[in-house]
């Protein structure tokens, strides 16, 4: 039976080399180039591969963001995703993982009501906020099972999936009932580049837009108002003390000096 897949993505700065506005104590995002969060490429690719594995399957890219986040959805379409939905509006500004996942869950629920969803795929984390919480939190809002750190979807049908979860000490095979949310890691696949046909489709794609009211959410449940945490200040990390170049006539001399210093400083 064909699968109905949702893949959640984020439009993020294309670089992590950002600076802080000392007046506001916040990262300067104005003028930065944005793109599809690199970790989401793996989730998008996996959705496309599932479509290839299970003919007739359908995949929708979903994001929450400004109007410009439309670009991340089109990037997903160019890579083989069928449809796109954007959760947007000023009420969503300043959200944290708690309020953002709540809105994403409401959007998944809306798609689910239109046509039952089997899988919601996520990247490992975003390259800006880095928390890696939104995928599993979205599952929690939906009261669906979730598996994070997935490196392989071994088998899947409309009722269940068997996936490989990469742990710190090895790999667990986890059986999960569907619908469920799955957060992927880099090992799951090697994303392909957009095809010419995909790029054409991306240009023409119709992006569905939803505000809080469309999702049955109150303004106080989303964005900064619905957040459970706030970032009070951002700053560059403390700079490292100046290092020391180890001099010596030969590589062996330098190596011996290195060991001397490591022992002297009780590092080893």
């Amino acid at each position: 039976m064909p699968l109905n897949i949702v893949v959640c993505v984020k439009h993020t700065p294309a670089t992590t080399s950002v600076s802080v506005d000392s007046a506001t104590g916040k990262v300067k995002t104005a003028g930065l180039a944005y793109g599809l969060n690199p970790f989401d490429e793996y989730a998008v690719e996996e959705a496309v591969r599932l479509k290839e594995r299970v003919p007739g399957s359908f995949a929708t890219a979903l994001t929450l963001g400004a109007d410009s986040a439309d670009a991340a959805l089109r990037e997903a379409v160019s890579r083989g995703i069928d449809a796109a939905a954007l959760v947007t509006g000023p009420e969503f500004d300043g959200g944290d993982s708690y309020s953002t996942s709540r809105a994403l869950a409401a959007a998944v629920q809306k798609l689910h009501a239109q046509k039952p969803v089997h899988l919601v795929l996520f990247g490992k984390n975003t390259n800006d906020g880095n928390s890696g919480m939104v995928g599993a939190m979205t599952a929690a809002w939906l009261n669906w099972p979730s598996v994070v750190s997935v490196k392989k979807i071994e088998s899947v049908d409309e009722a269940s999936a068997s996936v490989w979860r990469a742990m710190e000490d090895g790999v667990e095979t986890v059986k999960v009932k569907l619908p469920a949310a799955i957060s992927t890691i880099k090992e799951i696949n090697e994303p392909r580049l957009p095809s010419l046909k995909g790029k054409m489709a991306a240009k023409k794609a119709a992006v569905t837009k939803w505000g809080a009211a469309d999702l049955g959410l109150k303004p106080e449940e989303v964005g900064a108002a619905g957040a459970a945490t706030s970032v009070t200040r951002q700053s560059p990390p403390p700079s490292r003390p100046a290092g020391m170049k180890i001099e010596g006539a030969t590589a062996a001399d330098k190596a011996k000096k290195l060991v001397d210093i490591l022992i002297e400083r009780k590092i080893i």
Partner: peptide, 8 residues
């Protein structure tokens, strides 16, 4: 955040 470039 930002891959270690920002402390929040």
């Amino acid at each position: 955040q930002y891959g270690g470039n920002i402390v929040a």
